[in-house]
Write a protein that binds this DNA or RNA. Structure first.
Lengths: 347, 347
DNA sequence: CTCCTCTGAGAAACCGTTTTCTCGTGCAGA
DNA sequence: TCTGCACGAGAAAACGGTTTCTCAGAGGAG
């Protein structure tokens, strides 16, 4: 059936149903006044013909394109992809499609993409990045369409969504404490990152003291090195809370190479729950998931509300993280599906 | 300047330049006949006002949306992201934007996204996937717009782009042979994958015999296991060509744990050149890059040509892979930047 | 029986461009 | 001087829908 695709116009539907275009339009959109019989006749004709309204024509008059733009500088996609998936999920059944624009860190490229999207009359823009305390290299503060920031820093008075690093880290540390760990250290990324500061703060609050915090790169290599430092100084923790999964993987590998058993001797927690890293580590990593997909869903929902003129309170919203239990902490980690792991009980 | 964004219409430009809309349109598009002076006056007015034409109005009449859709089931984005980057790169300066639609493996979801894109009058569609010998769960064979397949199986008579697994694998094996390796084995993924068959064929052609081929999962775990099998059977190769980087990483880790030196005792080559795996392995992996970004660029270029009505010869096109040298093979691998590595001289 | 209101449906304007026609003018050729 | 043509520019028709307006007729109230 309906093999044609986009060829049939509302005019065809109208004439088949024996009504005017005006009536046809109203019938299909469930607006206007007419006999229920007429409405059904039009709808039937539309289905038979496989009619699909031309979104450009409709958008032109309605001043809505049912399109939003996602601007990101996270070329790698590690953060953007889950966000994108969430956005798409939230919008697809509203008939909204998403333009994905990867602008490295190039202001000119950003401008080009932005202009292209504005020309296409996007209903809104979601800005996303790879770092919560950095802005995209393009100014989005005086646009004719609403903007929502997801996982990147927004402008004054904007709507911004980030994950709650403090809460996520707190849960991780609490989990370790609940398992009986007494000497927990924190191996994390560069001190300049806001997320590093936030996670460190939660770590300190959790253990109720200064603890031991080692700053370094976001790499497996640094994980190795940190373990070397710790064992060299004779400080042997019984748990290591890591700033991300790559560091955690380096830590776990280094421990194994030293003959230290994970989780028997030392428990390890990662951050990001990046399946490809957390899942492939031996043993698989317990890790904090930032729920980026949920964050994307929320961003999609919000930008749509703004586009529809509904009021949305500006400000930064922190969305909760979730601890995903695998095997690197021992304790009650009974089950371990290869994907996703087990979500920690919240209470 | 031009703070408004999308508000100023061609009508405003025309009246400021003291001409009719018709003339304004022709002036801006460098069509029609008029004094050079008039043309410049209109252009000047447009710049001053920051005029940007409404793409919907333009598209409505021109029957072009300057928009294409990317349909993929590669949720993870490992393959799709580089392809996407290439497409975007090829199209952005033509003013074309890209809809990204992630349809898991859900036919219904695929249909919804596809319809949404067609409604929006996309000029063409690029289908992409995570496997070269599988189709997307949605039929794209009788669409009113051109379709190009990139890294996924296309329909009869379609334009399809894939990477040249044979050539890439051949280069890898040649590289090992050139380094003096005599006993090369191949540890790869499930035999059912077309790419596995192709890479195996190239491996056998390269060593001029049946060789040793171990099939398994695409995982680090399988890399470990394969090494265990090889060393248990007393067969100790001096080189291992792996079906992907994850397997290679498992292999390298397993070798290290056995005290076998890489690359001194055994050379290892991966496939995919997935930075996050290949770069973090110790030592960093020499690996075959499928040039997915170039593949994306080509896909973008082709779909645009088709959209413009230019003839494009149907069929499967294989794009060359590239061997990226890092440290896991020794030999002439002198330099090793952390990112990208060194491209093998093609000779 | 008349007047008013309410209902169903169509005519026409509109969205912001592009494109095709049409038309007046000036200049060259006869 | 008259004809024709090229040229510059504007009027108007598209594109494919939505929305506002208008209107004829039915039915109820007085």
């Amino acid at each position: 059936m309906s093999a044609g695709g986009g060829r049939v116009r509302i005019y065809d539907v109208a004439s088949r149903a024996g009504v005017s275009v005006a009536t046809a339009s109203k019938a299909l959109n469930d607006t206007g006044r007419m006999t229920e019989d007429t409405r059904q006749r039009v709808k039937a004709a539309a289905t038979e013909l496989g009619f699909r309204p031309n979104a450009m024509a409709r958008g032109l008059i309605q001043k809505r394109s049912f399109t939003i733009g996602l601007l990101t500088n996270d070329t790698y996609g590690r953060f953007t992809l889950p966000v994108m998936a969430g956005i798409s999920e939230a919008l697809v059944d509203q008939g909204v499609s998403v333009f994905l624009c990867g602008i490295e860190d190039d202001p000119a490229l950003g401008r080009v993409h932005l202009d292209a999207m504005l020309d296409k009359q996007v209903d809104g823009i979601i800005a996303s990045g790879k770092r919560i305390d950095r802005r995209l290299p393009v100014d989005l503060s005086n646009l004719p369409v609403p903007v929502v920031y997801a996982f990147t820093e927004g402008h004054e008075g904007s709507v911004t969504l980030v994950s709650d690093d403090f809460q996520g880290s707190a849960e991780a540390v609490e989990h370790l404490i609940a398992l009986g760990c007494k000497r927990i250290v924190h191996v994390t990324g560069p001190e300049t990152f806001a997320s590093v500061k936030e996670r460190t703060k939660a770590y300190r609050a959790g253990i109720g003291g200064d603890g031991v915090v080692l700053y370094g790169a976001w790499s497996e290599h640094w994980g190795h090195e940190a373990v070397a430092q710790l064992w060299q100084q004779g400080e042997t923790p019984d748990a290591i809370f890591c700033g991300n999964d790559q560091i955690a993987r380096g830590v776990v590998d280094a421990l194994r190479e030293r003959g230290v058993k994970v989780p028997a001797d030392v428990s390890v927690v990662g951050f990001d729950n990046w399946e490809i890293v957390a899942g492939q580590t031996r043993p698989p990593l317990t890790s904090v998931d930032m729920n980026l997909k949920a964050l994307g869903r929320e961003a999609g929902r919000l930008v749509l509300e703004l586009a529809e003129g509904k009021p949305v309170e500006p400000g930064v919203r922190k969305l909760p993280c979730q601890l995903v239990i695998r095997e690197s902490c021992g304790g009650n980690a009974a089950v371990t599906e290869s994907r996703g792991g087990v979500v920690a009980a919240v209470d």
